[in-house]
């Protein structure tokens, strides 16, 4: 089924964090604990599904020239919604995510999927695409978060009732892994591992070069230079 494919492609093949290298800031910042990673992933997935659905419904209404600001406002609306929900019902996650929760607004994954997918496809496939990408993002966060928590604090899922002491208490955990430096290091190694397993040439660049909304950013200025990554992705489809 093609709908099934829209969902599964985000999980591994086009995993937004590990393959297309989008949304690096939250990936690095909140992955000191596996539980925070799941919270962040769930919040981003919620925003991603909702914004994909709304943008896909409004794709004929939004004028092309002002589409980026319109997308940002839609996304920011849902981010505010999830902020209020988490603050009311799960205050511990709200505190743990802190400043990075409102920053979901500028997460490249969400804007990227709006621009690349939701503005061109129907509602159901956009919703499935959002769910797949969101779960892929959560998975990547969870892997990085687990590695950093197990090595850095010696525990797994601390802060929940399933807390497991992985390292025996006599072993000193490696604090390096929960420092910012550990975030960069673990993410680099995980991406390298994915490359090794998939036997694929690693992506050269991230950020603006791989960011799907880059050409629309640049096109405000001068006729777009198309990022290579976008072209590759289109070939895949």
């Amino acid at each position: 089924m093609s709908y099934m494919k829209e969902f599964t492609k985000g999980l591994i093949k086009e995993n937004p964090t590990l393959v297309t290298l989008l949304g690096m800031c939250p990936t690095l910042a909140i992955t000191t604990m596996a539980f925070n990673a799941i919270g962040m992933g769930a919040a981003a997935t919620f925003v991603l599904i909702c914004s994909n659905v709304v943008i896909s419904l409004l794709k004929k209404v939004i004028p092309k020239q002002v589409r980026l600001p319109s997308y940002i406002v839609i996304i920011a609306g849902f981010v505010t919604l999830i902020q209020l929900i988490l603050q009311a019902y799960l205050p511990s996650i709200y505190d743990a995510l802190g400043i990075y929760l409102p920053l979901i607004t500028v997460n490249c994954i969400i804007l990227g999927r709006a621009e690349m997918f939701a503005s061109k496809n129907n509602v159901l496939s956009s919703a499935l695409d959002g769910a797949g990408m969101g779960i892929g993002f959560t998975l990547a966060l969870f892997v990085v978060g687990s590695i950093r928590e197990i090595f850095g604090s010696g525990t797994w899922f601390s802060g929940t009732s399933f807390e497991i002491q992985v390292c025996p208490p006599i072993m000193e955990p490696m604090t390096l892994f929960i420092l910012p430096a550990g975030g960069f290091f673990v993410l680099g190694c995980v991406i390298a591992l994915v490359n090794k397993i998939a036997n694929r040439k690693p992506p050269e660049a991230t950020g603006c070069a791989a960011c799907p909304n880059r050409d629309s950013c640049i096109s405000l200025e001068k006729p777009a230079e198309k990022p290579e990554n976008t072209e590759k992705k289109e070939e895949n489809k």
Binding site: L21, L179, P180, A181, G182, G183, F184, F185, L187, G188, C189, I191, A192, L193, N195, K196, K201, P202, P203, E204, A205, T206
Partner: peptide
């Protein structure tokens, strides 16, 4: 496997 972005991230880790 490390060329490109992964090695950049590892270098960023050392700068950090």
């Amino acid at each position: 496997a490390f060329s490109g972005m992964p090695i950049t991230l590892v270098a960023a880790s050392i700068v950090s």
